[in-house]
Amino acid sequence: MDITAEELLTRDLDATHRALIAIARTLGDYVRHLLAPVAAGGPGLDGIFYAVTGTANTDLLGRARFEEFSRPYDRQVLEAVGDGLVVLHTCGAESHPEWFADERIDALHWDQFQPGNPQLDAPFGTTVVGGVNKDLFAVDADRTQVAAQLEATLEAAPDRPFLLAPSCTVPTPADGDSLRLLREAR
C-alpha cells in the first residue's frame, strides 16, 4: 500500500506517532551502543553525527508540524548521547539551523549556500560547521574555486571556534585533489 507523507501526517496520527516512537527508541538504543565503552562491549565512540534530513524545511513540515513530528523524537535520540559529543546537521534549503541552537549539541552544520540559510557567522552559541560549497567537490569541478572559497572562509572566519568542512555531503565520487585542499587548509 502506497502512502504519502501528507497522509502520514493527517490520516492516523496515533499510528504515525507510534512509528516515530519506535524509530526514536531504536536509534536511541543504537546510539547508546555506539557510545558504550570498549570494556563494556561497545565500540567506544566519542559522539555522533546526527542529520535531520529535511524535517526542518518549512515546505516539508512547517514549524508546528516540525515541533510535533520531529523535535520530540530527535530529542529522544539526542538524549541517548548522554555526555557524548553531537554534531547536528540540518539538511537542505530553508533548513532552519536556528531551531536547533538550544539543543544539547556541540556543533551545528547546515548548507550556508542553500537558499534561506544563514551564513557561518550566525550567532547560534555553539560551534558552527561549514565553509565550502559541497558542489565544488565534484570530479569535474574547478579546484581553483575550492581554493578560493577555502581562503575566503578562513579570512572571514567567525570570531569563535568553527569546523571547516563541506556544506553538506560531497558528491560521489569526489575530486581527491579538492578534498586534499580542504584537508590541508589552515
Rank of each mutant, 00 (worst) to 15 (best):
M1G: 08
E6P: 04
E6N: 13
T10N: 03
L13G: 11
D14V: 12
A15T: 14
H17C: 05
H17I: 11
R18K: 04
I21V: 15
I21R: 15
I23N: 07
I23Q: 13
R25H: 05
R25W: 06
T26K: 07
L27N: 10
Y30V: 07
V31A: 05
V31N: 07
P37E: 15
V38M: 02
V38I: 06
A39P: 05
A39C: 03
G41W: 04
G42R: 07
P43L: 03
G44I: 00
L45I: 03
L45T: 00
D46Y: 03
G47V: 07
I48F: 00
I48D: 00
I48A: 00
F49T: 02
Y50V: 15
A51G: 14
V52R: 09
T53D: 12
A56I: 08
N57A: 07
N57M: 11
D59Q: 09
L61A: 04
R63E: 15
A64T: 14
E67A: 11
E67V: 04
E68K: 10
P72Q: 01
Y73R: 09
D74T: 14
Q76P: 02
V77G: 12
V77H: 07
V81Q: 05
G82W: 05
D83C: 03
L85Y: 02
V86P: 00
V87S: 08
V87H: 08
L88H: 03
T90Q: 01
G92R: 09
A93E: 15
S95Q: 11
W99D: 15
A101D: 08
D102G: 08
E103N: 00
I105V: 05
D106R: 02
D106P: 09
A107H: 07
A107K: 10
H109S: 15
D111T: 15
Q112N: 08
F113H: 14
G116E: 14
N117W: 03
L120F: 08
D121Y: 15
D121A: 12
D121W: 11
D121S: 03
A122M: 09
A122N: 10
A122G: 09
V129E: 10
G130C: 02
G131Q: 13
V132C: 00
N133Y: 02
D135T: 13
L136C: 04
A138H: 02
A138S: 10
V139W: 06
V139H: 09
V139K: 12
D140I: 14
A141V: 03
T144G: 01
Q145R: 13
Q145S: 05
Q145V: 05
Q149G: 05
L150N: 06
L150A: 02
E151H: 06
A152Y: 01
T153V: 02
T153F: 01
L154Y: 11
E155F: 00
E155W: 00
A157D: 10
P158C: 08
D159C: 01
F162R: 07
L163W: 14
L163F: 06
L163I: 13
P166D: 03
V170Y: 02
P171S: 09
P173S: 04
A174D: 13
G176D: 15
S178V: 14
L179W: 11
R180E: 14
L181F: 00
L181H: 00
E184H: 02
E184R: 05
